[in-house]
């Protein structure tokens, strides 16, 4: 899951990014400025945007409105020091999905981020099932045939994303876009490496993670 943090307090943004990255699921981009943040939000397929409202150059509320006007579906968590009910209502009405006032608890922020991502993919439960797999998005444990498996971070991130988009063909480009932030250097063949590693663990005959030639991958057992 790729997250964008638009927050002008550089240290706050950095701290949030650190915690989210340590949560395995998230790849994080940071923008400390409204204009730059707006550009990033509009040109990249983020799974979640954490948006401060008081920003230099372009106001957070304007970014939110422009995102929704451009039909950008990314869930937005509004983050601000303003706690008046009218401000919360305005933020939600402008297209925000959730609201946190500063100062907040990191654990709450992380839980809300997970919930927003889950919801946006139509998965109400924190445990996502895919065929014989149970993926716990909180503990990042994967249960396969009554065995808990702790996957390496990027393998888990890849599996979680495929599970969220179960039944849909996900291209390699999409995977790269959603699993890595800007900072990461990536090459498309790493995806193939991770896929084959995952198959070795619980899908030796390629029935769970199938390759659609020329298009990408699809998670979900093929009809027999």
């Amino acid at each position: 899951m790729r997250v964008l943090i638009v927050e002008d307090e550089a240290r706050l943004a950095r701290n949030i990014a650190q915690v989210l990255r340590e949560e395995v699921s998230f790849a994080v981009d940071i923008s400390n400025d409204g204009e730059d943040g707006q550009h990033m939000a509009l040109t990249n397929p983020y799974d979640l945007i954490i948006l401060d409202l008081m920003l230099p150059r372009v106001n957070g509320m304007d970014i939110l409105r422009r995102l929704r006007a451009a039909d950008n579906p990314a869930p937005v968590l509004v983050l601000t020091a303003r706690d008046a009910p009218a401000d919360m209502v305005a933020g939600l009405n402008a297209g925000g999905d959730d609201y946190l006032t500063k100062p907040f608890d990191m654990s709450v922020l992380v839980a809300r981020c997970r919930a927003l991502v889950r919801r946006s993919h139509g998965k109400p439960s924190a445990v996502v099932e895919a065929g014989p797999l149970k993926i716990d998005t909180v503990s990042h444990l994967v249960v396969y045939e009554d065995q808990s498996i702790l996957l390496p971070a990027l393998e888990y991130r890849l599996l979680e994303y495929l599970a969220m988009r179960q039944g849909a063909v996900v291209s390699k480009t999409e995977l790269i876009e959603h699993l890595y932030g800007f900072e990461a250097e990536n090459f498309s063949n790493v995806i193939e490496v991770y896929i084959s590693s995952l198959r070795k663990r619980f899908d030796p005959d390629h029935r769970l993670i199938r390759t659609v030639r020329g298009q990408g991958y699809i998670l979900g057992e093929a009809p027999a």
Binding site: R11, A81, P103, F104
Partner: peptide, 25 residues
Amino acid sequence: TADASHELRTPLAVAKSTLQAVRNR
């Protein structure tokens, strides 16, 4: 009042996030 609360909350949020981030692992 709104500005004052913003000005007080922001450093508080930064400090809290720093401590919580460092305690995370």
